[in-house]
Design a binder for these strands. Structure first.
Lengths: 347, 347
DNA sequence: ATGAAAGCGCTAACAC
DNA sequence: GTGTTAGCGCTTTCAT
């Protein structure tokens, strides 16, 4: 069923069919009806291939995320899909599983598909990997993580701020030995959230014990191993900050594995407000980021023709639930008591 | 950068470029190199539009799911994406949010995109809604839910069996008043899981009190309201079976809201093994379905040219954790004590 | 082995 | 208003 068939059936030319069906150009009401009837009778559906080839436009977006199974990315994808639908575009979804080779392959695919824009959570943060995609004239928007040395629109959460706020919350409660389970330094999220953690300590005049920091890739297994390693190494921290939902889940399980009670023995804060954080007992205090908005914003940037100079930073906020409390003095035999200083008064 | 440009640069015809790049047809090694060099120099990337139009083949799959934010569908999508990548196809993902209008629009989109197959969790289970898609020659595979009156390949979990097993587990523990929070009868999952629940009771010779059954759409708000309604209505059940992860999450929250303790006051079983079910306290006993496999299998069916006659039913299994225990006699003042019968011995 | 040419389904420019 | 036609980028005969 091609347009030609419809033209034949309606006794008109293909141009008329195109005009009648698309509404572009003038067609007399009489012929319009004839065309509509013929199209209906033949159950004709225009082909996006022919149209796209002619118009040199596909109305397609590419979304490249790490792991669609992670609810954070699910939420992000939901934002992208919703916004895309609203502007009449559809999206090819690619899951890299944090593998740079997968990412390359998907990139190549999306280029060949002539997507109008690629919205990506970059695995490979070397600028070169993305350079030729942008050289090929495909609009590129990064989300969640940045790529250095590439003037590309990017939408991220306020990683430093969110992390700072969470850490400050713990310091304010009186914690002085706060363990940190963070991401790899190869990811901007890993670096920035650690920076917020450090900044809060610095401003509070509290020294960080580097022995209670761990960095792990964003996989459950590695994160869980890191968390156990942390807990088993003369662990005397009174609080733990996990820098994303994977790390948080692994940390939570590890803490339970070791019979440590939250918040009695250990206060826990996690970056990412994920539905399950309300289901644990106690419910977790978390840093919430506007995940769906990030996705929507990315689509807006992908459509906009005037790009923002710097990355768009979306605000985070601390959601205080029940996983934190002041440290129990009795519970921290090895803790060095820092002398109270004015800077310690964070709020 | 079109193929013509490459041909010009390499001093050959477009046909030769096509052959050299695709590997179809013979090209002398010398010219092949010239073409490759020219293509590289121009950073040429073949267009899938031209190719698709000519070949009348898009290598594209459409995936229609309810809510990408639900980890169950995330897992399903991961299976589809992985299997699709393995066979060199890519996928347009559509989230209906359980809205029939959205589904229609997406369907129309996918038809126009000339996807080779649509893998869908159907919202609208009227056969007619899908009839013209299949009439248009697009392969259709349903997952998770069935559509009546349509001879279409379908991949589902063993809903009756899983539900039966979970219920039998509770009966075996001695529960005689088991509440049920199920899905709408408009969905096959809703009907079938209720059927398994009933069958287990029937075979155990235990009568069901219809007053402790609720049916809710698969949205958190409605499910939560239903769960509260159930708990607030002279609730004296000793166990609760939630027929999917949304219902289970809502039930868990409602139970907590009401200060009911699991498993002391109430045993809880949920259909769907979702990561958070291990994070609650106690960890939840669940019916696990091979979600990722279902997605992979659907892709296989979409590619296969000989279709299975009936739906493909994937096995489920009960994962026993800590949310169930025998009922405490003291805790069920209103419970009618059924007389022990041989049929009660389920295992 | 390679060039020329037809044609996939569509839109837009042009002619009437 | 409507028919005709060129051409979007590609693959594949058909000649040579």
């Amino acid at each position: 069923m091609t347009m030609k068939d419809v033209a034949l059936a309606a006794g008109v030319g293909v141009g008329t069919v195109s005009r009648a069906l698309s509404g572009n150009g003038h067609v007399s009401e009489a012929t319009r009806q004839r065309v509509l009837v013929a199209a209906e009778a033949l159950t004709y559906r225009p082909s996006a291939l022919g149209r796209g080839l002619k118009l040199r436009r596909t109305d397609t977006l590419g979304l490249v995320i790490a792991d669609i199974t992670n609810q954070f990315y699910g939420e992000l994808a939901a934002g992208v899909l919703g916004a895309a639908k609203a502007v009449g575009k559809h999206v090819i979804v690619c899951a890299t599983n944090e593998d740079a080779d997968n990412e390359r392959e998907y990139l190549d695919l999306l280029v060949r598909q002539r997507v109008e824009a690629i919205i990506a959570v970059p695995v490979c943060t070397h600028a070169e990997a993305w350079q030729d995609a942008v050289a090929l004239g495909i609009r590129l928007v990064f989300v969640d993580r940045t790529v250095d040395g590439l003037a590309t629109p990017t939408v991220v959460a306020d990683n430093v701020g969110g992390s700072y706020e969470a850490t400050a919350h713990l310091l304010r409660l009186g914690h002085r030995r706060i363990a940190f389970l963070g991401g790899p330094t190869s990811k901007s999220t890993g670096r920035l959230r650690e920076e917020g953690f450090r900044r809060a300590h610095r401003e509070a005049g509290v020294e960080i014990d580097e022995r209670i920091l761990r960095r792990s890739r964003y996989t459950w297994d590695e994160a869980h191993a890191s968390a156990l390693d942390l807990l088993d190494d003369r662990f005397d921290a009174t609080a733990l900050f996990a820098a994303n939902n994977i790390l948080g889940e692994a940390a939570f399980m590890a803490v339970r594995d070791r019979g440590i009670r939250i918040p009695d023995d250990l206060s826990l804060v996690m970056f990412d407000d994920i539905p399950w954080s309300r289901l644990t007992n106690p419910a977790l205090t978390v840093v919430s980021q506007p995940t769906r908005d990030i996705g929507q914003r990315a689509v807006a940037l992908a459509a906009d023709h005037h790009l923002p100079e710097g990355p768009v930073v979306m605000p985070t906020h601390l959601v205080v639930r029940d996983s934190c409390r002041p440290p129990l003095p009795a519970k921290r035999p090895r803790t060095r008591q820092p002398k109270a200083s004015p800077a310690t008064q964070l709020s």
